[in-house]
Design a binder for these strands. Sequence first.
DNA 1: GAAGTTTGCCAACAACTGTTGGCATCGACG
DNA 2: CGTCGATGCCAACAGTTGTTGGCAAACTTC
Lengths: 186, 186
Amino acid sequence: MTEPRRSDATRAAILDAARRRFAADGFRRATIRSIAADADIDPSMVMRYYGSKDGLFAAAVDVELDLPDLAAADPGTVGALLTRQFLALWERPPTDEILLTLLRTAVADDAVVEKMREVFSRQVTPAVLRFGDPADAPRRAGLVVSQLLGLALTRYVLRLPPVVALTPDEVVDEIGPTVQRYLARS
Amino acid sequence: MTEPRRSDATRAAILDAARRRFAADGFRRATIRSIAADADIDPSMVMRYYGSKDGLFAAAVDVELDLPDLAAADPGTVGALLTRQFLALWERPPTDEILLTLLRTAVADDAVVEKMREVFSRQVTPAVLRFGDPADAPRRAGLVVSQLLGLALTRYVLRLPPVVALTPDEVVDEIGPTVQRYLARS
DNA sequence: GAAGTTTGCCAACAACTGTTGGCATCGACG
DNA sequence: CGTCGATGCCAACAGTTGTTGGCAAACTTC
């Protein structure tokens, strides 16, 4: 479809540096100049290829999460499964840096907060519908998210040593039952 | 001890405006000019009385949490008790704005991250020591914090509707057992 | 009432931000 | 070779930031 351009390497270098800078510094502290320096090009190139800082951010954050659906899962172990998948997203490039960026900027930028609310109501809540009482699916989805995002916050943002030290299997063993209990409530 | 100064009203107005601005906008977006405008004084007054923006932030965030200790609590219901106390801190002025500010800036500022790690290891972990096996107290403390901070994140920062809609009693009913389980592990 | 300190505002600086326009250079194509 | 668009860099603008020095008014102290 889209033909390869001679500047593709530059574009990719910019996007790569942007992802790292946004993840490390957040939206505001990551300056176009610092991103351009990392990519070893001129700041004006960023503007030419991505229009604005907002455009660059949108491009850096736009990825497919391709979440496997939980429809085929065993209802008895879906908590552990969901926890494991959540963990995998946060520890596998390039989604790890992107999710870290989203969480960090969400707490500082109302627009990103709105986006996360939308993701929550449009993707998380429906996935929870099949388990337990459909009437309070939103509440159960909220509880699940509170535990999983709390895990991400303490493990990847605050990096509390005992939470970082947990192996993925240990995380699933500890957090999975909690998620399971929230999912399958009344 | 310290005698009252004629400028005490101004100082208090600045601190009050600063708390609100920091809570609403975070450290970077809250400018000295906007805080001064809220307090209806000149920006240079902020500098005179608090030295710098960092000094103002430190003053705005410096409060006594006076956490009641859990020593006298019934080990069987300490999870619910801790959850209720945590909730009270986040919903009662002026700690509500201060905690919101700390959480928001923590994810964007490494210095505040370090401060939260310190609070965690020096105040949370010891409080957990009495329950369950002392050897893995840090891990259990980490799990407890992951759930409680996840609650704060979804309820007060992201404001996910179903989590906001929960009454304090409902929060204790849902989250309390999870905290209890983490606290009293093996 | 005079001297001195405190309180407050105004104006400005220096640094940094995102962003833009102009100009050189390179590659493809006739 | 000559033309032309794509690519890249340099320099600069305009706005905002934290911060500072100077000066007027108000209060305190004698």
